[in-house]
């Protein structure tokens, strides 16, 4: 948990300007990341080993690999959701625009406002549709009702849910279908206007229409967001991402342009997984 020298923040101290140049500075830099979970009988599981990777602004990075390979663990580190798991221990560095988010004094609440997350199973709050989307805004202290209404409507629109719920914003969110609930969770995450969006297998429900809508949405969102998506589906990774990272047994085996990963991967393990020999 070393502190970060100002010189490390970004070249020239202008992170925003750097984004616009031809070789953008990374949004997220992960350096030598290790994650350990405490086992049930004492002892530790080494869930992630020495992972180093960059995530660039306005790209979609897909994380693939067999179950238990560490891809979801990796995703949860990026907004410190591993803090909620008892006995989880993290070592290494994760820099968000040059600042180490794993530092002890780093404010996780602020971090999670900048790095949003949508989970595998939709978890609507026991509130109305409107209040679900407004939840994050209110939690951050926004009290202006018109501004809240504007941002809730905008977020529902961006998540392609507005047309389906605009006449029943006051209805309980628990009445939504699975696909709608997932888009509600995305709208909820978008309403707080994060810079990075983490998606943990957001389309695991076998609903082809919902999946298509969500993939369209991801394509639109990457115009101004950085997206990291965990997916079990090779086809989905190929459709939505610019770069793909392959995890296997807690290690990052290979990361590269999605096209290259799916046509001529450097590692045989990647090729074996993609062509379905294991996993």
């Amino acid at each position: 948990m070393a502190t970060i020298e100002p010189s490390q923040r970004s070249p020239g101290g202008e992170p925003r300007a750097a984004v616009l140049t031809a070789a953008p500075s990374p949004k997220l830099e992960v350096r030598g990341l290790d994650v350990f979970y405490r086992g049930e009988k004492g002892g530790e599981t080494h869930a992630l080993q020495d992972v180093t990777v960059d995530v660039f602004p306005r790209e979609v990075l897909a994380l693939i690999g067999p179950s238990g390979c560490g891809k979801s663990t990796f995703l949860r580190v990026l907004n410190r959701m591993n803090d909620t798991i008892p006995g989880a221990r993290v070592a290494g560095k994760v820099l968000l625009e040059g600042e180490d988010i794993l530092a002890k004094d780093y404010d996780v609440v602020t971090l999670r406002r900048r790095v949003g997350m949508v989970f595998q199973r939709p978890q609507p709050f026991p509130k109305s549709i409107f209040d679900n989307v407004a939840y994050g805004l209110r939690a951050h202290g926004l009290a202006d009702k018109r501004e809240i209404t504007r941002r809730v409507e905008q977020a529902l629109g961006r998540a392609a849910l507005w047309d389906e719920v605009k006449d029943r914003l006051d209805a309980a969110a628990l009445g939504l279908s699975g696909g709608q609930a997932q888009r509600l969770c995305i709208a909820r995450a978008l309403a707080v206007e994060p810079e990075v969006l983490l998606l943990d297998e957001p389309t695991s429900a076998p609903d082809p229409i919902a999946t298509a809508k969500l993939e369209e949405l991801i394509a639109e969102l990457k115009a101004d967001l950085t997206i990291v998506i965990v997916t079990h589906s090779m086809q989905q990774a190929a459709r939505v991402s610019q770069r793909t990272a392959f995890f296997y047994m807690g290690r990052l085996i290979e990361v590269g342009a999605t096209k290259q990963m799916f046509t001529r991967p450097r590692e045989t393990r990647t090729e074996d997984y993609i062509t379905g020999r294991f996993g």
Binding site: M81, T84, G116, F119, Q123, G136, A139, H140, V192
Partner: peptide, 14 residues
């Protein structure tokens, strides 16, 4: 469910 707590925390709620 813990997922529900996580969903709230992930939105930057305290």
């Amino acid at each position: 469910p813990r997922d529900l707590r996580d969903a709230s925390l992930a939105l930057g709620a305290t």
